[in-house]
Write a protein that binds this DNA or RNA. Structure first.
Lengths: 152, 152
DNA sequence: TATTGTTATACTCTATAACTATA
DNA sequence: TATAGTTATAGAGTATAACAATA
């Protein structure tokens, strides 16, 4: 008999249900907080793009697209908006003229750091309702989930 | 001395960092899976809307907006798309003529169930790489996170 | 007057397809 | 020819503001 057809679900399926149920709700909170940050707000993908360029300055557009898990067309449009807002620079690579070199501006770095701290604090406020042991459980669970889904 | 200014971060802030780091990546996977489901794909918000109407048939637009955490304008546009695709019906409430009555169609129910099973299986496939104990840790952590962020 | 819902507008994310320029 | 990136196009999510209809 196939376990899927019995009343007792697999543990992995139960856990998958939790992923489907919980993640969208918390993501919505995350998005709203990042969006609400003073005049200069960031979307979650924009935040991730800036964070990536902070860690890997001088990345190409393909690098960025790969990291974000989007197509190059999508990454190109995103980069264009960030250039327009003076949060990143996009220069031609001196040797490989096909490639672009993406780098955070000082303004981009400042906004990244402000936004990160602001959002972290908002989330931490909510999380601090948990007793230390449960907080640890959440962090551990997320870390394991992250290891599984973050290839790089 | 203020703990935020020391090198040792608060546990809640560490955990918040994990939320910011992990959630977008897993969400992207979730979104891609739901989107890839045969010809008739659903976005995550659409999936959530159908799931809500399955649990609470006959809800009003305001109910839906409230549940999804979006404005009524956003919910109205979403509902319109679902009506166009014959996944829900939108009727006038017989007594309260201001309100609409939203209900899943048979087609909507089928797609919801197929999509849920398909996506759950895809996520469970990944999760099943974890040993049982760690799987349990992930589920527990998500459950706690969910309790915190899901008011209703 | 307050509430329900829609419409208009604008912006971002996202993909696919077609394209240019470079290697 | 293959790769890097852009542009055109389309559709969805999202908000704000203005509005109509109803209670």
């Amino acid at each position: 008999m196939n376990p899927e057809q019995l009343s007792e679900p697999l543990a992995s399926e139960q856990c998958a249900n939790k992923v489907m149920e919980v993640l969208p709700v918390v993501m919505k909170f995350l998005r709203a907080e990042m969006r609400s940050h003073k005049s200069s707000s960031l979307s979650v993908p924009q935040f991730r793009a800036l964070a990536f360029l902070h860690l890997s300055p001088g990345s190409s557009l393909s690098d960025l697209a790969e990291h974000l898990g989007v197509t190059k067309a999508t990454a190109s449009a995103m980069a264009e908006r960030l250039v327009q807002r003076d949060l990143i620079t996009r220069l031609e690579h001196p040797q490989q003229r096909r490639q672009v070199v993406l780098t955070l501006t000082a303004e981009g770095l400042t906004l990244l750091q402000e936004s990160r701290q602001f959002t972290r604090n908002k989330i931490a406020d909510i999380l601090s309702q948990l007793p230390p042991q449960e907080l640890q459980a959440v962090e551990t669970g997320l870390a394991k989930l992250g290891n599984l889904f973050m290839i790089s």
